[in-house]
Write a protein that binds this DNA or RNA. Structure first.
Lengths: 210, 210
DNA sequence: CCTATTGTAAACTAACCAGTTTAGTTTCGG
DNA sequence: CCGAAACTAAACTGGTTAGTTTACAATAGG
């Protein structure tokens, strides 16, 4: 009786989640049929319904797992040996790369589409995505190292502005199918311009000595 | 035989569009049923189907009309007697007010949800929304009056950054149901901070002589 | 006032979908 | 190798949906 058998509700639990994730991301909540999910997961419908009481609970479980996965960004903020400017660039690059990735796009699309129907989902997504990142960035902006270079009154607002400068028109273009595969150069350009604007506002000015 | 009778395919065309708009905005494409639309529009299903071949075409027609309506922003850029800084604030206020409005939120939500299924819709929304505004703002940034105050290399990028600074966390909070009715003060604060950051980067610096 | 157009209500088709049930098969610990 | 637990395929229930059809009523122009 090891821990694994305790936790798992059945042999094919992960398979079901994987199939459901694929189909929900592709079709949205209304568009996805349970038969399709079962087929995609390589599992019978009866098995699926032995794990989840209904389609909604399956949907929420999938998206909660995705939100959790999305939150694993700790590593990024622990790396050392970079200047503040370099670290801002690294953060921005990470953000924009996520924003235009298939995973990031699908997550955003599905959550936006269903947030009204499932308020709990909206909260979960916001908390593990924008909020979590905002706090991480704000934390960095408050660090001693950052404070030596930056002059920030409201770190949460500054963090938000930095993130927004990364979102950019490009994210919308990808979202609405205008642009498919943005090049690394495009991304770097946006990162560079975002950090440039951010620093123009928040870089510490030499104190005017009376 | 006046023009009106030519254009209209029937007496109740506008009614159908109005009902369809309401239901699609409320329920999304998959979630909306044609019976519900007909009921909401106060029209029989047969009438509805005499105007549109199927649900998809009705959906696209509604959203195209909405996109057209959204494009009517000419007025804003013609008003005179404002300083460049004031005009930036007016533009930002207009943007953010739209972003958090019920109409703006529903439009965005539905278009994001269905852009993958209806590529044409994604293009239409992008063209009449973000692209149209971006061009308008860039045009203003290139005007002689603005150029006297601002020093901008890439006006489209600058316009994009200004718009993004308006979107902010607040738009996401409303989108995901975290915040319901942002106060006028909150909006003004964001506008102020957006313009501040924008000007920090783009305000013309006194030329260093010699 | 008459007639063609435009509309209506309601029934109907054929498909689909969430969720259940059944009868039988696979898997795996002991 | 046995027996319980997990799984399967497939049929079934009850409900919904997009789209059509039919028989009838309102409307509006000439």
């Amino acid at each position: 009786m090891n821990a694994e058998t305790q936790i798992k509700k059945g042999r094919k639990y992960d398979q079901v989640i994987a199939g459901a994730r694929a189909v929900f991301m592709r079709e949205g909540f209304e568009g996805a049929s349970v038969d399709e999910i079962a087929r995609d997961a390589g599992v019978s419908k009866a098995t699926l319904y032995s794990y989840f009481p209904d389609k909604q609970h399956l949907f929420l479980e999938v998206l909660k797992q995705e939100c959790d996965a999305q939150s694993e960004v700790e590593v990024l903020f622990e790396q050392t040996g970079l200047s503040v400017e370099e670290k801002l660039c690294v953060i921005c690059k990470k953000l924009i790369t996520f924003f235009v990735s298939d995973f990031g796009q699908d997550m955003f699309r599905v959550c936006v589409a269903e947030a009204k129907r499932f308020p709990e989902l909206g909260e979960t997504f916001y908390a593990s995505g924008p909020k979590h990142w905002g706090e991480k960035i704000a934390g960095f902006l408050c660090s001693d190292k950052a404070k030596a270079v930056l002059d920030i009154e409201d770190p949460f607002l500054a963090a938000d502005q930095l993130a927004q400068l990364c979102r950019t028109d490009l994210m919308l273009k990808v979202m609405f199918g205008i642009e498919k595969d943005p090049s690394e150069e495009e991304l770097d350009r946006i990162v560079d311009e975002a950090v440039r604007t951010f620093l123009a506002r928040y870089r510490r000015k030499p104190a005017a000595v009376g």
